[in-house]
């Protein structure tokens, strides 16, 4: 593994900001905005998996959707294989979407219940003109189903006939059908039972090895992404608190929020509950985030300066950046 995939990033995100107006809240002409994503920069190297981890309100999902322009970013730059995605018009965007696919969290809601699995998967092929004819497309669908651990005769069945884990496999097959270079996996295992979650994580591991997929994996849990990730970024209130090569992040977390997240995860070992860092309070509203460091209101080591300075993401190791004035 190269220590730093930054220079050869397939995808590069710079100072990304996505702000939403608060609906129905234009009180006294002062429009209130939600700073869902507020200045995020990172790179995804070709063939690498970068995970973005954070709790509710961290903006992790909005980052992913902004990159694919499923929501419109407010400012910043997103470059995919040399193309500035934020400058594309809709026709150009449609063309590039063949190379950028998404796997959703909820395998129940994201599959059309009236379409057979074969049609669901073949839809993208048709849309992008892949396959010589219907027979060729059918053969591709059959191969895809087998690739994700289902069988070719599943293509005649409908989503309701499948379990949650199988539906997530269908969602993965649909994303892979158009042979994308990049996949956004948005909490793909969060809704699954533990034993099924392990199967899907292993499948993604296989696919990354066999197909050299480049992926952003979004999760709310640091333990789920550890095995898969090359790099892990930790988000809080629309900002990156820390990003590092995976092993480095788990071995040497530097940001107090990363430490707290690692410490809060229940460990399946009785008596292993360590001197846990239990964060006080809750994530503040992204409409009115704290001044300076957004984490300071819950931070166990915050000082007076933390209210004044927005900590820049600072290099503290070859591939390790942290946004904390006390730790960099």
């Amino acid at each position: 593994m190269t220590a730093r995939g930054d220079e050869h990033g397939l995808l590069s995100v710079r100072e990304l900001r996505t702000h939403f107006p608060v609906r129905g809240a234009a009180i006294l002409s002062r429009r209130r905005i939600v700073r869902a994503v507020d200045g995020i920069s990172f790179d995804v190297g070709s063939g690498k998996i970068v995970s973005l981890v954070g709790e509710s309100g961290s903006g992790k999902t909005t980052v992913g959707r902004s990159i694919l322009r499923l929501v419109e970013p407010t400012s910043g730059a997103v470059t995919f294989d040399g193309t500035d995605l934020l400058a594309l018009r809709s026709a150009e965007l449609r063309a590039i979407r063949r190379r950028m696919q998404i796997i959703f969290q909820d395998p129940f809601a994201s599959l059309n219940p009236r379409m057979s699995v074969g049609r669901i998967i073949a839809e993208g092929l048709k849309l992008h003109g892949i396959g010589r004819n219907a027979a060729d497309r059918r053969a591709r669908v059959a191969a895809l189903l087998e690739r994700v651990g289902l069988t070719a005769d599943h293509m005649r069945r409908y989503p309701h006939e499948f379990s949650g884990g199988q539906r997530q496999r269908i969602g993965i097959a649909r994303a892979l059908a158009v042979e994308p270079d990049f996949v956004l996996a948005d909490e793909p295992v969060s809704a699954l039972d533990v034993s099924i979650q392990a199967q899907v994580l292993n499948l993604l591991q296989d696919l990354r090895e066999d197909l050299g997929l480049t992926m952003i994996f979004i999760a709310h849990d640091l333990s789920v992404v550890e095995y898969l990730s090359d790099r892990v970024g930790v988000m809080y209130l629309g900002r990156l608190m820390e990003i590092a090569d995976a092993r480095d992040l788990y071995a040497r977390p530097r940001h107090p929020y990363t430490e707290a997240l690692l410490s809060a995860a229940p460990v399946p070992k009785p008596g292993a509950r360590r001197d846990r860092i239990v964060l006080k309070g809750e994530t503040p509203s992204p409409i009115d985030p704290p001044s300076g460091c957004v984490f300071r209101t819950r931070c166990p080591i915050a000082g007076p300066d933390c209210a004044r300075v927005v900590p820049p993401l600072t290099q503290i190791g070859p591939a390790h950046q942290v946004a904390c004035i006390k730790r960099s």
């Binding site: 333990s223 095995y227 071995a251």
Partner: peptide, 15 residues
Amino acid sequence: NSIPTLGATVTGAAH
């Protein structure tokens, strides 16, 4: 066995 062990990659294999 289905649960990832937090910190497993620190001392073990990468993936």
